[in-house]
Computed example of a mutant assay.
Amino acid sequence: MSDRVLGAVCVVASAAMAWAAQDYAAAISYEPVGPRAFPLLLAGGLGLSGLWLVLRPGAGAAAFRGVPWKPTAWCAASVLVYALLFQWLGFPLATALMAVPVGVAFGGSWKQALTGGAALGLALYLLFDKLLDVVLPAGPLASLLAGA
């Protein structure tokens, strides 16, 4: 598959994401941003990245030679597991557990990945929940994070 084909697929997927997100609305309007903003931001980023792949010079099948497939598979699998465990474990724990294999895949040690994952999960939860007023599931840590 060439970069141009992948880019075209990304552009089509981003258009589908943006179209699907148009109907997203909270049952009770208690959040200033609402549920529509994040999927639209992701769709915009995916669409721009796809356009870059389509329009850049020198894109072709040779671009996939030397791709580190094992770390890429680890990252994809960890994101899939993240999606499956998100509601059950809550945002902080699921994010921390997702960040560990991704950190190791990018060359970090297990200690660095665990530390970074825990810090990332907690910091992003506090940022979204406390500063941006975006309600995220806290999971088993709900009682600990209620006072934070």
Rank of each mutant, 00 (worst) to 15 (best):
C10H: 05
G7Q: 01
V79P: 00
L141N: 08
F128W: 01
P92K: 00
L48C: 05
A16H: 04
V135R: 14
P92R: 00
W19M: 15
Q112M: 12
L131A: 15
C10I: 04
G107S: 04
V5Q: 08
P92G: 03
G116S: 06
L55Y: 09
L42I: 12
A118P: 03
S29M: 13
A18L: 09
F86S: 04
A63V: 08
Q112I: 06
G147A: 14
L85Q: 04
L126Y: 03
A37V: 14
Q22R: 15
L6G: 05
L46K: 01
R65K: 15
L84F: 12
L84Y: 10
G34Q: 09
V54E: 03
A37I: 13
A63H: 08
F38H: 03
R56K: 10
A61S: 14
M98W: 00
P57H: 13
R65Q: 10
A20C: 11
A99G: 02
T115M: 09
L144I: 07
A59K: 00
L6Q: 07
G107V: 06
Y125D: 02
A105V: 06
V81D: 03
A62I: 10
A148R: 08
D129W: 11
G50H: 01
L53C: 04
L122F: 07
G60L: 07
L84M: 15
K111V: 13
A21L: 03
A119Q: 08
L97W: 07
P68M: 07
V79K: 04
A83K: 09
R36F: 08
F64S: 09
G45P: 02
A25G: 12
S143V: 13
A94D: 03
K130A: 12
Y30P: 03
W19R: 11
A18W: 05
V100Q: 01
M17R: 07
D23T: 14
T115R: 10
L124K: 06
L124S: 08
A77L: 13
S14G: 07
P32R: 09
A77E: 10
K130V: 12
V100P: 00
V81Y: 06
M17N: 03
L89K: 02
M98P: 01
V67Y: 11
A18C: 11
R36K: 14
L93N: 02
G44L: 05
